[in-house]
Computed example of a mutant assay.
Amino acid sequence: MLLKKNIPLKYVLGKIKFEILLVAVYTLVIVVLHDRFNLKHMAIPLSVPMIMGTVISLLLAFRSNQAYDRWWEARTVWGGIVNDSRSFARQVLSFVDETSYDSEEVSHFRERMIRRQIAWCYSLSQSLRGLDGKEGLERYISKREVSQVSRYANVPMALLELHARDLNYALKQGWVNEYQQVALDQMLTRFSDGMGKCERIKNTVFPATYSLYIHFALNFFILLLPFALIEYFGLVEVPLVVAIAASFLLIEKMAIHLQDPFDNKPTDTPMTAISRTIERDLKQMLNDHQLPETTVNNEQTFYIM
């Protein structure tokens, strides 16, 4: 996720540097041909690209809104994961009373469940980005559990299954009653629902034909623009056309990046940072003072992942 400050101009213009270079060369060629050969018939009425520009602006605005809705839905889902993870840890700690049973075994059970929940958050974020969902799990769960989940294609689902097995074991041991077991199982269902919503967003492709039509219309608008301005500005139209084209191209690029919130880019939903926040909160609930490091360096970093 891009931060409010310190976004370098190099990053912004780097998204369209090749397109801008082509526009500048193309416009310069049009200007040179017009001036050298006095080709007045090359000019077209300014109203033609103005009408196209208005239509394209509306289409880009609609597409940007749709792309932002996808990004915001992803962020909302992960906001729910934060709340549910905290509630899950609180329930595990409050429902399972280590003073009434074998304190060592119960304490191990509580810690295992909460640390596995931290592992689930990291694993889900890695899986959604197309990375290895097992990477780094050994910091939170045992080698035996890492080996078990490695057999699954969907590692986060496997971790939830381990949650369910431990929960059934706790019920048989009498550490939780039936009502508490149902409440905890409902939390697992909420985690599964959140994972499914994220997978739906990732696997639902933004309509390709819609994007393609807008892209073609935008390119045609940029191609016409130098011919409409050549009678008024001469050589000055090169930076003017570049500036206008850059405005439209940046909006298009913004929509393209926002429409895929799990694509491992600076514009992504900050799942790693959110998972680190969950880790911090849950470890503090366990009285574990080995907290994760902060992720943002205000002097150098302009985004968080």
Rank of each mutant, 00 (worst) to 15 (best):
residue 1 M to V: 10
residue 4 K to M: 03
residue 5 K to I: 14
residue 8 P to R: 02
residue 9 L to H: 06
residue 11 Y to F: 14
residue 14 G to F: 03
residue 15 K to G: 11
residue 24 A to M: 11
residue 24 A to W: 07
residue 29 V to A: 14
residue 30 I to H: 01
residue 31 V to Y: 13
residue 32 V to P: 01
residue 33 L to D: 05
residue 37 F to W: 14
residue 37 F to I: 09
residue 40 K to W: 03
residue 45 P to G: 13
residue 49 P to F: 06
residue 51 I to K: 11
residue 53 G to D: 07
residue 59 L to G: 12
residue 62 F to Q: 04
residue 64 S to T: 07
residue 66 Q to K: 14
residue 68 Y to N: 09
residue 72 W to D: 13
residue 76 T to K: 09
residue 77 V to D: 02
residue 78 W to S: 08
residue 79 G to S: 12
residue 79 G to V: 08
residue 82 V to C: 07
residue 84 D to P: 00
residue 87 S to R: 11
residue 88 F to M: 03
residue 89 A to F: 01
residue 91 Q to P: 01
residue 92 V to R: 05
residue 93 L to P: 13
residue 95 F to Y: 09
residue 96 V to Y: 00
residue 97 D to M: 05
residue 98 E to Y: 07
residue 102 D to T: 05
residue 104 E to S: 11
residue 106 V to W: 04
residue 111 E to P: 10
residue 115 R to Q: 05
residue 118 I to W: 00
residue 120 W to V: 08
residue 122 Y to T: 05
residue 127 S to L: 08
residue 131 L to V: 01
residue 134 K to V: 02
residue 135 E to D: 06
residue 135 E to A: 10
residue 138 E to D: 15
residue 138 E to A: 15
residue 140 Y to F: 15
residue 140 Y to N: 06
residue 147 S to H: 11
residue 153 A to R: 09
residue 153 A to G: 13
residue 154 N to V: 07
residue 155 V to Q: 05
residue 158 A to H: 06
residue 167 L to F: 00
residue 168 N to D: 12
residue 168 N to L: 11
residue 169 Y to H: 11
residue 170 A to R: 02
residue 172 K to Y: 09
residue 177 N to A: 04
residue 178 E to M: 14
residue 181 Q to I: 01
residue 186 Q to A: 05
residue 186 Q to Y: 02
residue 188 L to N: 06
residue 188 L to H: 01
residue 191 F to Q: 02
residue 192 S to G: 05
residue 193 D to T: 04
residue 193 D to R: 07
residue 198 C to Q: 07
residue 202 K to P: 07
residue 204 T to R: 00
residue 206 F to I: 06
residue 207 P to V: 07
residue 211 S to K: 10
residue 217 A to T: 13
residue 218 L to K: 01
residue 219 N to S: 15
residue 219 N to F: 14
residue 220 F to R: 00
residue 227 F to Y: 13
residue 227 F to H: 04
residue 227 F to I: 00
residue 228 A to W: 05
residue 235 L to K: 02
residue 235 L to F: 10
residue 239 P to V: 12
residue 240 L to S: 02
residue 242 V to C: 15
residue 242 V to Q: 08
residue 243 A to G: 14
residue 245 A to W: 10
residue 245 A to E: 13
residue 250 L to E: 07
residue 251 I to E: 02
residue 251 I to F: 08
residue 252 E to Q: 10
residue 257 H to R: 13
residue 259 Q to Y: 12
residue 260 D to M: 09
residue 260 D to N: 15
residue 261 P to E: 07
residue 262 F to G: 10
residue 268 D to L: 05
residue 269 T to M: 15
residue 271 M to Y: 04
residue 272 T to I: 08
residue 275 S to H: 11
residue 276 R to I: 06
residue 276 R to T: 10
residue 276 R to V: 04
residue 278 I to Q: 04
residue 278 I to V: 13
residue 280 R to E: 11
residue 283 K to N: 13
residue 284 Q to M: 14
residue 286 L to G: 12
residue 291 L to T: 09
residue 297 N to D: 15
residue 299 E to Y: 05
residue 300 Q to K: 09
residue 305 M to E: 15
